[in-house]
């Protein structure tokens, strides 16, 4: 079970959280101007790196706030968590 450092509450057990998948996936707009390929990329073609992935998490059984985490998919180490509206630099 991961220990997830909520930026608002501190480290808590994974069971308090919901993983919301890849973060910073920009939603293309307006719908009338978005091509099929771009829309398909938004819907389906997400990164699946071996290594650091920026993800969205919800502290569902805590502060109920969404935030971002940078987690390594190889060993689950969480390098950084930060607010939902931020995007700090992080070496790839």
């Amino acid at each position: 079970m991961l220990s997830v450092p909520c930026p608002y509450c501190g480290p808590r057990d994974e069971t308090e959280f919901v993983n919301g998948g890849e973060g910073h996936v920009d939603r293309p707009v307006p719908p009338e101007a978005v091509g099929d390929a771009d829309w398909a990329a938004y819907l389906f073609f997400h990164d699946n790196p071996k290594g650091h992935l920026r993800e969205r998490w919800l502290h569902a059984f805590g502060c109920r706030r969404w935030f971002h985490a940078i987690r390594s998919t190889a060993d689950h180490a969480i390098a950084l968590t930060y607010p939902i509206d931020a995007k700090p630099d992080f070496p790839a």
Partner: peptide, 13 residues
């Protein structure tokens, strides 16, 4: 509820 809240918190504050 969670769906509305996610879009509000993450995309359209």
């Amino acid at each position: 509820y969670r769906w509305l809240d996610e879009w509000h918190q993450c995309e359209w504050p």
